[in-house]
Design a protein around this nucleic acid. Structure first.
Lengths: 148, 148
DNA sequence: TTCAATGCAAAGCATTTGCATCCAA
DNA sequence: TTGGATGCAAATGCTTTGCATTGAA
């Protein structure tokens, strides 16, 4: 075992969420949450399985997917599909809302925020009589290292 | 049979692309192209198979996927993943580059363009030393009919 | 004790691939 | 005539589900 999960705020929030909805707090759930809240990467379900296995805290793949569902419902993580054939996840609470730059060669993901984008979302949605809930802005291209 | 494919500009452009790369011009390829260039929807591979079957121009699913690849390589269609578990396609040449508003209830897709978004993409990419190739802006929410 | 969680394996789906047959050029 | 296209069915890869077992409360 490695993580003192109690010290990670995100894990605490997940614990509260589980209590609130009378979902058992299991070691597997805490491990998945601790891993997610302890990384800055945008990792896939499979990477979660791998990393937990390596650190000796193996959790079944099905349980990982089920825990990701819970974390999504709790609003504690964000789900992404960058068109790679699988989804990636990142913790929410850490940083404010942000968008992504994705390198089409090496897969590197860089985050950025832009108040202008936020403003434009509201503007455009209102114009089309939409009630906006969320949005995605992804810019694809080549990062400095990959671009010759 | 229904379509006089010769009258649709997109189909003509596809024909030229096939000739240029010495790919045979087959009736199946023309049918898929004609369907795509004749609709304003954002349709899935499966919908293409269904609609062609209904109109008596059945084309195998594998051929549809293979033709979509060609159309993508030709730059004549755009591919979208709105997180529904499958991809949607739309003709490119018809309209200038645009973004999407997606109703999370009924799945309706509305297109919009915004010069401001285009400008911001370049700005942000340059800031992070990215060479931008393309981008996606999707705003999710409830359309007027679905919102109450 | 008890009801939900776990984890394996099987099932589901969209998409891709293998291969025998067919056809555009 | 012939190399590539077609289309069925099988394979793939991510994700979900069924079910017997385990464990949190």
């Amino acid at each position: 075992m490695s993580s003192r999960t109690g010290s990670v705020p995100g894990v605490e929030r997940f614990r509260e969420f589980l209590n609130e909805y009378n979902h058992p707090v299991t070691p597997q759930r805490l491990r998945v949450a601790a891993l997610l809240f302890g990384t800055h990467d945008h990792i896939s379900a499979d990477e979660i399985v791998q990393r937990l296995r390596v650190s000796g805290d193996a959790v079944g793949k099905a349980t990982v997917y089920r825990t990701l569902d819970l974390l999504l419902k709790a609003g504690l993580i964000r789900e992404h599909d960058f068109g790679e054939g699988f989804r990636r996840y990142e913790p929410c609470p850490a940083r404010p809302h942000h968008e992504h730059l994705v390198c089409v060669r090496c897969g590197k993901v860089i985050e950025f925020e832009s108040a202008a984008f936020e403003r434009l979302q509201t503007e455009v949605a209102t114009l089309h009589r939409f009630e906006p809930s969320h949005h995605k802005v992804e810019i694809y291209g080549e990062c400095e290292e990959c671009h010759n």
